[in-house]
């Protein structure tokens, strides 16, 4: 049992079927702190990924690159660019492989996180998506089944959200609001949790 392009297609379809309800919530959250286009980015991005899903190659690395390309075609927003960056970094790790063991998920996510730090300039602790990915990487190290991964990731992303709620945002447009962001959830962190929740029922 491993991650293949077919698994990826099913994953995209799963997210696509739910993204139209997640999107408006994200726009609303992002509108309070940022430019309010996070939901649009997610909606357009996943619909476009679904559009190209059938043409993705069996090479999982190249398939992830294909997803990144689909993302950049519809979004120039910073979140869209960071998602594309993440997909490409993970893709590089999987280049030439048609099935990737689930136990390598944390490793792929760690490459994605590192690339997002380099491109976006945020650090861990700034109350961004990275604090969620960091928690998920740590929590999924011992997991090697999709269900185990999903459960561990869900708990980690949810705990990270709780842990950072009462801290201020330290980067991006949200930083301008300073201490007023205490008590508010970071939109990127919520988005990551919602994406994991798409896989709640196995």
């Amino acid at each position: 049992m491993a991650l293949t392009t077919e698994t990826l297609r099913r994953g995209i379809a799963r997210v696509q079927s739910k993204i139209d309800t997640i999107g408006p919530e994200m726009n609303e959250l992002d509108g309070r702190l940022g430019d309010g286009d996070l939901g649009v980015t997610l909606i357009n991005g996943f619909h476009n990924m679904a559009k190209v899903a059938d043409t993705l190659p069996d090479d999982v690395g190249m398939a992830l690159f294909g997803c990144a390309k689909a993302m950049t075609q519809v979004s120039g927003s910073s979140f869209g660019t960071l998602m594309a960056t993440a997909l490409m970094a993970a893709g590089k790790q999987a280049k030439g492989e048609s099935d990737v063991e689930w136990s390598r998920f944390p490793e792929l996510l760690a490459s994605a996180q590192e690339a997002m730090i380099l491109r976006g300039g945020a650090s861990l602790g700034d109350k961004t998506l990275l604090d969620s990915t960091d928690a998920v990487i740590a929590a999924t190290r011992e997991q090697n089944t999709p269900n185990g991964l999903q459960e561990a990731a869900l708990k980690a992303a949810s705990d990270a959200l709780d842990a950072f709620r009462d801290k201020p945002n330290r980067i991006g447009r949200a930083r301008i609001f300073g201490d007023r962001t205490i008590g508010m959830d970071d939109p990127g962190m919520v988005a990551f949790l919602r994406l994991i929740q798409c896989f709640d029922d196995g």
């Binding site: 690395g61 190249m62 690159f65 990144a68 390309k69 950049t72 120039g76 660019t81 594309a84 960056t85 490409m88 893709g91 590089k92 280049k95 491109r119």
Partner: peptide, 16 residues
């Protein structure tokens, strides 16, 4: 910023 970031990604893609 935009030109640089997009060319960075382009070069990564091309290398793949």
């Amino acid at each position: 910023g935009g030109d640089r970031m997009n060319f960075d990604m382009t070069c990564e893609m091309a290398e793949m």
